Simulated assay, not measured.
Amino acid sequence: MLRVLVVDDELPAREELAYLLRLDERIGEILTAESGADALRALEREPVDAIFLDIRMPGLTGIELARVLARFTHAPAVVFVTAYDEHAVDAFELEVVDYLLKPVRPERLTDAIRRVVERANGPAARREPADAETIPVELGGVTRFVPRSEVRYVEAHGDYARLHTGDASHLVRASLATLADQWQEAGFVRIHRRLLVALPYVSEVRFDAGRCVVQVGDAELQVSRRHTAQLRELLVRRARPGRGEGR
């Protein structure tokens, strides 16, 4: 069973969340703290499996506390619980387990606990299917969660990355290098220092004047000479999955 810590500067919110957590049989001991500093003191006394953490608190905010926890050798899983949705991008950057909006719905809390359990059981158990991940993006002050399976290609945009889907594009606070590393197993391939493509969306590869170009939806994307050979090999391997590498 999980030992969890609830951190919120408002007593009613702490009590309500603790009550909902007690209803889940996967939850064992529940500790509470009214501030980020109080939470750190509690963690010095005994470790926990997960922290359900408010974001807007006096003193040490939830975002700041999560950054501190990320440096722990054995960091607890972090679930943000907040009334505000504008911090979803920060949550993505910090790789928190889940992001719950107040008032917390029991079914969303159940799902968050499931994610915490999977994380506690190790990487293999907690890995989502390749196309199951969602990315929080902000659009007009509203946070949407875009399925990674809808992302056709990604374009570097300074310290950010722009995700291109079939009908829109979204700016996220993550570098192209980071996404290339994290999304490799989901079929994303680097074709240029500024471009990452999802192989299932590549419909055509051609050579124009000695340069390689891939067609992804309506977009024609240039492949750098450095990445051309690797891309061709991956596409051939994908098209002929039954052939061994030695043939």
Rank of each mutant, 00 (worst) to 15 (best):
I27H: 02
A120W: 04
H87W: 15
H157I: 05
L139K: 10
P241A: 12
A161N: 06
S35W: 01
A112W: 00
H87P: 06
P76V: 09
E16S: 05
A91M: 09
V197T: 12
V78F: 09
P58C: 09
E133S: 14
E34W: 06
R108L: 01
F188N: 09
L53D: 04
Y153D: 08
W183P: 09
Q222G: 08
R190C: 08
C212N: 03
L196T: 12
R173P: 06
A186W: 03
L23V: 00
S149R: 11
T61D: 15
Y153E: 02
P200A: 13
A83F: 00
A209R: 05
R26F: 06
P103W: 03
L65N: 03
R3K: 14
R232Q: 15
I27P: 03
Y201N: 12
V117A: 03
R71H: 12
V213A: 03
E155H: 04
D85A: 12
L40P: 06
S224P: 07
V96P: 00
L234W: 01
L100C: 00
E107T: 13
Y201I: 01
V48N: 05
R247D: 11
D208P: 06
E15N: 08
V48C: 14
R3F: 10
H227G: 01
A156R: 10
I63W: 00
F72D: 04
R190D: 07
R14Y: 02
A13P: 06
Y160S: 04
R190A: 14
L199I: 13
L100P: 04
V236D: 11
R115G: 13
D38A: 14
P106S: 14
A198E: 10
F72C: 06
L23M: 14
L17T: 02
A130K: 13
D85L: 04
L235P: 13
A37K: 15
R190S: 04
S169A: 09
A219C: 08
P123V: 02
L60M: 05
D111P: 02
E220C: 11
C212T: 14
E107M: 02
G141V: 00
C212H: 02
V197F: 07
D159P: 10
G242V: 07
H192G: 06
E128T: 13
H87V: 11
V97K: 05
E10Q: 11
V197E: 05
D8F: 09
Q222V: 13
E29H: 14
R3D: 15
G141T: 07
P147W: 03
A130L: 13
E155P: 02
A180V: 00
Y201M: 01
R148K: 15
L17C: 00
D24R: 04
